[in-house]
């Protein structure tokens, strides 16, 4: 089993969580994790793995921490 820590920020926490540990049989992409959490693609503004900005197609590894930030654009 692969263990991935998922951290959600700002509006993404609504009806979800701040931080959770997820387990997978095979390495998932960020997009797959987001789909599981019902986060629409347009809300994946910044996706970081272990503090590094990566594309949503990135394959997660055991022990990774995934952080997801939504788009913030008001003024």
């Amino acid at each position: 089993m692969l263990k991935i820590t998922v951290k959600l920020f700002a509006t993404l926490r609504h009806n979800r969580f701040k931080v959770a540990e997820h387990e997978y049989f095979a390495a998932p992409t960020i997009l797959a994790v987001a789909e599981e959490l019902k986060i629409p693609r347009e809300e994946l503004a910044l996706t970081m793995v272990n503090g590094v900005l990566v594309p949503v197609e990135h394959l997660l590894q055991d022990g990774d921490t995934l952080s997801i930030f939504p788009p913030v654009g008001g003024g």
Binding site: A10, T11, E42, E43, L44, A45, L46, L53, V56, P70, P71, V72, G73, G74
Partner: peptide
């Protein structure tokens, strides 16, 4: 980098104000 993937002109503030 911040807005690389934004296809819409507004962020979540369109919902939350």
């Amino acid at each position: 980098k911040l807005y690389l993937r934004c296809t819409e002109d507004r962020g979540m503030e369109k919902i939350y104000g």
